[in-house]
Design a binder for these strands. Sequence first.
DNA 1: CATTTGATGTTCT
DNA 2: GAACATCAAATGC
Length: 201
Amino acid sequence: MSNAKLSPSFYQRQDVVTIAQELVGKVLCTQINGEPVTSGIITETEAYCGRGDKACHANNGTRTDRTETMYQAGGIAYIYLCYGIHHLFNVVTNVENKADAVLIRAIQPLDGKKEMLQRRNKQNINPALTAGPGRLSQALGITTDFDGTVLKENTIWIEDRQLGSGSSLVATERIGVDYAGEDAKLPWRFYPQESNWVSQK
DNA sequence: CATTTGATGTTCT
DNA sequence: GAACATCAAATGC
């Protein structure tokens, strides 16, 4: 059962925080415009809940053209532009009209390292290549063009390669959400204790 | 080293 | 206009 793609039933569970924890160690893969597959181990995630979490774009039933994607059933990509420059990749979870999502903040490169270096205009493989939500999206060729894409092969998908869990997960406050008041303190950011591939240390 | 700043688009006031 | 789930380059020690 290695290389199993995660199925809709994985994403459509109710507890976005559990899903965020389980996504760490899974493998995010992309194949953009017929280019070689690029992939990496997910090393950092954050959970966002559409109900009672002020840090979430779709909190409190806020529906805009941008957040409409998050209200769809789990198992699709929610990608939006941050600070006018960076494409941030999220996995939509839960069922239709429950706007939960998991932000992927960092990966560790596996396949297609050459393509990732080209897309990032870098010479060497180090955490600056893919550790950070804007960085990994650029490395994998993810743009807002793929907002709402179903997570399946030949574009964007996630595999469970049964990689040993390695070290235990650390839970901390989320990054860059100070504006959310009390909700900014929720320990909904997860990464492996011993990984160097996280967005800040 | 740390801190500041410029880039840049979408959403909300 | 201001703020924003950011990054890289420039500036200041």
